[in-house]
């Protein structure tokens, strides 16, 4: 047979090709943090930054324009809570620090844990919403029948592009009772 067909080369090439396969498999997983980072920087998917931002420099308030923020709250199915914001719509100057209170009430007879996840539309605005204090991405335990007032302190980055005049911040509250009971860290808040 034609063993002379440069047989020795095969194993080297197979090793390389197999290495590329492993590499591409790893690349698939590497895309997950890459995507998250990319979204954080560009607001690609409308998720806000989960780390607390430094306070606003009061001098940088841009009083020449106003940005309208709409607040929206929703409870996911399976979580018998009431969850609302004190205001639905707010106009702020970029750079101006504002606090909005959110209220959550556990309407059940058992202790539960919830967690609110934020989403901003348009996503382009997300990187410019800087929260100095927030309850989002955190487990929020509530005893039976209890109510919690959760403040969110934020300011809009004065660098926000001029064409964004309105954006919506939506919070979806999820039931995390089981996950919390199992001690699972569900969202990484370290940053």
């Amino acid at each position: 047979m034609s063993e002379q067909h440069s047989k020795p080369d095969n194993s080297k090439m197979i090793t390389r090709l197999l290495a590329s396969v492993v590499l591409m498999f790893a690349f698939g997983f590497a895309l997950v943090p890459l995507y998250e980072k990319f979204c954080e920087v560009t607001g690609f998917n409308g998720r806000t930054n989960n780390s607390a931002a430094a306070g606003s420099d009061g001098n940088l308030v841009d009083t020449t324009r106003l940005v309208t923020i709409e607040f929206h709250t929703r409870v996911n199915r399976g979580l018998p809570w009431e969850f609302s914001s004190e205001v639905r719509r707010l106009q702020v100057h970029p750079g101006e620090t504002t606090t909005v209170n959110f209220t959550a009430t556990n309407r059940t007879g058992r202790d539960m844990t919830g967690q609110a996840l934020p989403s901003v539309a348009p996503g382009e605005a997300a990187p410019y919403l800087l929260k100095t204090e927030c309850f989002c991405f955190q487990n929020q335990p509530l005893a039976a029948g209890d109510t919690a007032v959760m403040p969110m302190q934020f300011y809009v980055d004065p660098d926000i592009p001029n064409h964004i005049r309105t954006f919506t911040l939506s919070y979806m509250m999820y039931d995390m009772t089981e996950a919390a009971a199992q001690g699972r860290v569900v969202v990484d808040t370290s940053e």
């Binding site: 492993v22 498999f25 690349f27 698939g28 997950v32 699972r184 569900v186």
Partner: peptide, 26 residues
């Protein structure tokens, strides 16, 4: 291999409590 990665993530999301694609888990 990327497809293999995606189906693996689907599997772990469904059975092993990861949250690659589950908004509730981030």
């Amino acid at each position: 291999p990327v497809l293999a990665g995606v189906v693996t993530m689907v599997l772990t999301d469904k059975y092993f409590a990861t949250s690659f694609f589950d908004a509730a888990g981030g």
